[in-house]
Amino acid sequence: MTDSDNPTVSFTDIEVTICHISRMIEEDKLYFVQMAGAPLMALLMGKRLYAPTVGYVVEEGAVCPDPEFPLPRMMLGSSGVHFRAVQWTSMLMVDSHAALGFMDYGLLAALQVDRFGNFNSTHIGGTFDKPERRFGGPGGANEIASQCWRTIIMTKLQKRKFVEKCNFVSSPGYLDGTPGARERAGLPPGTGPWRIVTAEAMFGFDNTTHEMRLDAVAPWTTVDDVLARMEFRPLIAGKMGVMQIPGEQELKMIRADIDPGGFSTGKGDWLTIDAVTGKKIG
């Protein structure tokens, strides 16, 4: 149902976030991807479509695997996801690779993020001892966000996720944002969050103040809409970028090869847009 004869395209917020991140994957770099799930799906799609020789490690010690599509439903630690690695080793080893500065990018997901890119994966609401809802914990995100040169974090654009203050800082962004804050906490210099990616908006960070900056919005939304869905007001880029619409090929790959059956990517919020104008329908 559309005003024009333009084709439409439907996808979930998780699918489109995976598409956004997949386009950021660069050749000739090394990525550290946390556990299984959407970040690994995004990396593998980027590797397949745009950066075939990109290298990556996963926490459980597989170095630069080259898994075949379709990916297995249970990816965590499975032989399918570790297929054709250059080495099978341990978490201690790959964490050391990051400590040494080999990992250009960390790729993570977060429950909550603040203006300095500190993020939460531990609990929402309440206190640490009496949480409203407890989640899994930092996992490997703390070491990845501390030690990789640049960290890319995926999350959802919601007021309860872009917060003034995280309920719990599981993993570090720029801490209080002051110059040298990470170094004073013992973290390696020159590291920190680089991009926050959601379905509708992409953020970077100011080099000096370390504040989050809105860099790009999806064609089906506006800067005002984005700001209305955040608890804090980020810096606004001088020239606002426009994020791409997911292509048919990308969505087909997600549904057939990356997450067949849509067990995790299909569970997001569905959206239908005009494939030409990028405007929301309905």
């Binding site: 400590a99 500190n118 531990t122 640490f128 930092p138 703390n142 070491e143 501390s146 030690q147 995280c166 719990f168 800082v169 599981s170 993993s171 570090p172 801490l175 804050a181 990470r182 004073r184 906490a185 013992g186 973290l187 390696p188």
Partner: peptide
């Protein structure tokens, strides 16, 4: 080691800076 510092995770751990 080069991580944990600066976070609430550190506060709730037995690590020392």
């Amino acid at each position: 080691m080069r991580y944990l510092g600066g976070t609430d995770t550190f506060e709730q751990s037995g690590a020392i800076l």
